[in-house]
Design a protein around this nucleic acid. Sequence first.
DNA 1: TCGAAGAACGAACGATCGTGCTATTTTGGC
DNA 2: GCCAAAATAGCACGATCGTTCGTTCTTCGA
Lengths: 223, 223
Amino acid sequence: MPSRRKGDRTREAIVGRAVAHACRVGLAGLTISSIATAVGMSKSGMYAHFGSKEAMQIAVLDAAADEFSRTVLVPALSAPRGEARVLDLVERWLTCGRTRQPGGCVIVKASSELDERPGPVRDRLREHHLALDESIARIVRGGIDDGQFRPDADPAQFAHELYATMLGFHHALRLLDDPQAEARTRRSVAALLDAVRADGHESPALASTRGGAAETGSNEEDR
Amino acid sequence: MPSRRKGDRTREAIVGRAVAHACRVGLAGLTISSIATAVGMSKSGMYAHFGSKEAMQIAVLDAAADEFSRTVLVPALSAPRGEARVLDLVERWLTCGRTRQPGGCVIVKASSELDERPGPVRDRLREHHLALDESIARIVRGGIDDGQFRPDADPAQFAHELYATMLGFHHALRLLDDPQAEARTRRSVAALLDAVRADGHESPALASTRGGAAETGSNEEDR
DNA sequence: TCGAAGAACGAACGATCGTGCTATTTTGGC
DNA sequence: GCCAAAATAGCACGATCGTTCGTTCTTCGA
């Protein structure tokens, strides 16, 4: 039994459908009618759960963020600290995009929709993003404490660049339909990790995609 | 005299306002009424210029892309080949975001709005993006031919990563209001350039932001 | 200068939006 | 099994959406 009262269960179902729908039409594109028909309910039936459209948008936002946290962020935290954890996070993130799971893309869509629209929805979205940034930065700090990453690495900068990389992934995957989207993203992440690794060696992934030029190139072999 | 017929002039004015408006509400958020009142015309008056809302969206998209090309891409092409040209492009791109000029943000917004909405508008947007990718890649190829960039550098990968970086810039600037958005973006670009530079030296910009650890750290001094 | 071509208007249309209100059905503790 | 409480449906509202139509001004070449 997922919830005590029945209303909680249907509310959950509504939000679930709404998240999936928002993945296609965006958060601002959500309509009470469309979701109502999608779950087989009347419009007024939904107003008992969410008092307004704005409240429903926030509920959708929270659900999407929760789903992302549950399926991507939290599982990655059980991977070994440092580089392995970053790679695990990215792999789960890529899977989230590959399977077109709604959580991540709703947030990406909402980010560009709401960036110039002040209000409670935008504020909530901002909070989610700041929390995500902080989570990534914490993972990086773990790697620094472990000695895997350089002590002078900038966790906030890493978080910023990693998120930018995933934005690029979404862009290439969804708009451009680029079949190399995942491969390019992995290369970007490998380069990101190279920049913060304590020893200066390139990652095997990046070196291989460069056609073996790396070992004869410019990087040193001391240590 | 900007145009022969008067209708062309007003059409230009309409599109101009529409681009500015789309920068706030997105391409899908555009309304015939809102633009009509913004330019002081009647709704039906606009239908003489654009037969449908979709046609107007495409006109807005083209105008935004043209403005971006005119104010960012083309001027950057008169900078010296290679790294200087990349940096010039990025600087102009950053300025475009700093001054909240509408061109860039309309396209960024539309990209996430339309990524799951097939149709002529999405197709046109895709074309613009592929053209931009190709333009960036061509700049990189110029640097390779000049010997500034490694011969095995991947222009398409560079274009992908540069665009991802600018997506991250928009995100940090507009949604997060991060005052460091520009600085972080410049560091990202510097890292991107480091990866493709023919000699292995770090750029001065990147080394300085690392607090001087670079020269005592892991990078070599041979050559 | 005249008159056709073009530009802009006002009104109205069906549809759909978000949102209230009042019934009616369904649930679940006693 | 009863009955308050919760959940949902039905209906209607004002507003606004994109779009069409017929009409009226305005432009500008002949």
